[in-house]
Nucleic acid binder design. Structure first.
Lengths: 149, 149
DNA sequence: CAAGACCTTTACGTTAACGTAAACCTCGGC
DNA sequence: GCCGAGGTTTACGTTAACGTAAAGGTCTTG
């Protein structure tokens, strides 16, 4: 790295409503932090999951962006598509001035996701049992191999 | 369906080692059973995850095949690739006459998968908290909307 | 024997989620 | 002044996991 990890300019006295820790990040920093490529991060922006500020051409990410990315990647690990993730994220953002219909729709989606997670929990439980079984057998065979081969 | 659900011919007296329930399935039956297309099932075979017998041209699936398919689909729901699933499945099959190196490798893979599952468990827990939070906020906003709108 | 219902193979099409390459800008340090 | 480490856009390539015809075989039921 050529520059020290980017921090914003020290807050002056008359700054806004106490921006407690106004740390910012470059795209490269985030990439290393989450072990993804910069391409991935730019792609997520293109897909409407991130919207960093710009200093000239350069993207500047703040805390909110970092959290977004974290949640996005977590969703991915759970097998959600970017479209699904965006659906929730965008509705969350639009929530304050959402109308009844939108809010009910959001709650509906959330319920659905939750059902999904419950099923995954069960799947994991079953899968763990399977793995236990396979490993036990493998160890048995290994032991029975004794000192031959 | 034109034919009744396929069952094998009634076992004759001198049959093998007591095939307790020798039920068989057509590709269409399995497809309905698991809510996938026949294309998917044929694709899994092509990828080396299934190997049904043939009666002429037609595929005949037995209990073992059905379980395989079930496990495969469960793996998919957990975000495993077909390649990963095949890796475990094939090693499992090759286990009895596997050498030490293969067995150790299998156990290694299993440990890795298990780590994966643990992480998913944590991800799910966190994701559930997020969803709870979002839903709570949504309900708050909805309530605050009172009778307006 | 014709119509369905089911099966088969072959093969090209599609989508999501990036990878990869080219060509360029820009800043700080030697 | 230029070099290297970062950043940028544009655009074509790739992979997994199927979807979607098209063209044909087999059986049974009216």
């Amino acid at each position: 790295m050529t520059q020290p990890p980017s921090t914003s300019a020290p807050a002056t006295a008359q700054d806004g409503p106490l921006p407690r820790q106004r740390r910012t990040y470059s795209i490269g920093e985030l990439a290393k932090m989450f072990e993804v490529t910069t391409r991935t991060i730019r792609f997520y922006e293109q897909e409407g999951l991130l919207a960093p500020e710009r200093r000239g051409q350069t993207r500047i990410y703040d805390e909110k962006d970092r959290v977004r990315l974290k949640l996005t990647l977590r969703g991915k690990r759970l097998g959600f598509s970017l479209a699904e993730i965006r659906e929730v994220v965008m509705m969350y953002d639009a929530m304050p001035d959402g109308n009844r219909r939108q809010l009910r729709r959001l709650i509906e989606i959330l319920t659905d996701k939750r059902r999904n997670l419950e099923r995954q929990l069960e799947d994991i439980r079953l899968m763990q049992l399977e793995l236990d079984d396979v490993e036990r057998r493998a160890r048995d065979v290994l032991a029975s191999l004794g000192d031959s081969d």
